[in-house]
């Protein structure tokens, strides 16, 4: 059985005058025990999608099921079995770490002891601070506490809305390791993130932009479907280089990428031609071929 099935979901906000379309006809399926990433920039509709799946919002069109239960009709049953971690830290800031955990255990009719094995790895890291107020924790620790609270009732599906936004690189890495471990326990995990580099850590990803899904595939699949050559170029005059790359007719696209600019070659043009084009410009540069990654794929999909 599929853990999550989304069928042609659309969601609009606002009144007649100013309508914002958050989601337009989204469909996808998530298998049981899968770590499914929803990757997209801010405002792509990730949070709306999560809220629809966690029964907090109603979609205008389409249907969705979580664990085989309808998100509209069976909302009460869904609320008992999913774990949800909103994008914004939403625990009681004036309660301590331990009080928060106890509180959420109580409202889910369970106790901390009952499912301690599930959260042990995560909770043990913040346990030394269990008497500290949740509002006084660092960003990474807040995420760990929020995850512990979302897991306290052993949910079958876990919804994590941008869990790593505003968290340092080390904590982000740790967080994804935790998700791997949870997945091993058989929990289906849906995670949204604006960070492209996290996509490769998911089993499958859906690239989403302006409420539409651009592609659903494994991270490797997304990359291999790219099928174009990418050049990375660097110069002492990065600004002019980018301007020249953007003007170049033999390129499909050019954009800054870290310390390089990435240039996507058109199918019938070669790296040699690009080199010659840049040589005419008369400034020193450095160019090499590079492997496409998720971000390159996303940029290409966004353009179409």
């Amino acid at each position: 059985m599929k853990s999550v099935v989304v069928n042609n979901i659309s969601k609009k906000y606002g009144t007649k005058k100013a309508v914002t379309t958050a989601l337009q006809g989204i469909s996808f399926e998530v298998d049981k025990g899968e770590l499914f990433g929803i990757i997209g920039p801010d405002g792509a509709g990730k949070t709306s999608l999560f809220r629809i799946l966690t029964t907090l919002l109603l979609a205008e069109e389409g249907t969705a099921t979580v664990d085989g239960l309808d998100v509209v009709k069976d909302y009460k049953l869904i609320r008992q079995r999913v774990g949800y971690m909103p994008g914004r830290f939403s625990l009681y800031q004036d309660l301590t770490v331990k009080e928060n955990l106890d509180f959420f255990a109580t409202i889910f009719n369970t106790s901390v002891e009952e499912n301690y094995d599930l959260i042990k790895d995560i909770y043990s890291q913040i346990e030394p601070f269990k008497e500290r107020k949740a509002g006084k924790l660092s960003g990474g620790m807040k995420q760990k506490l929020a995850l512990s609270c979302a897991l306290i009732h052993r949910p079958s599906v876990l919804f994590l809305d941008e869990p790593t936004t505003g968290v340092d690189a080390v904590s982000r890495k740790e967080f994804w390791e935790m998700l791997r471990k949870l997945k091993a326990q058989g929990i289906t995990i849906l995670v949204s993130t604006p960070y492209m580099d996290e996509a490769s850590l998911c089993d499958r990803v859906a690239l989403i932009q302006s409420g539409k899904i651009l592609s659903i595939d494994t991270p490797e699949g997304v990359v291999s479907a790219f099928g174009k050559k990418i050049m990375a170029a660097k110069s002492s005059d990065m600004l002019n280089l980018l301007a020249d790359l953007k003007k170049a007719e033999l390129l499909e696209d050019a954009y800054p990428f870290g310390e390089y600019h990435h240039a996507v070659l058109k199918a019938n043009n070669s790296a040699e031609e690009l080199k010659n084009y840049l040589l005419q410009k008369g400034y020193p540069f450095e160019i090499k071929e590079t492997k496409p990654n998720i971000e390159d794929c996303f940029m290409a999909l966004m353009k179409n």
Binding site: T54, T55, L56, K76, R79, Q80, V82, Y84, P86, R88, F89, S90, L91, Y92, Q93, F104, I107, F108, N109, C149
Partner: peptide, 13 residues
């Protein structure tokens, strides 16, 4: 405002 209502709604309460 704090968002705690959001979590509380996604619970059996």
């Amino acid at each position: 405002e704090m968002g705690t209502m959001e979590i509380m709604l996604v619970s059996p309460m």
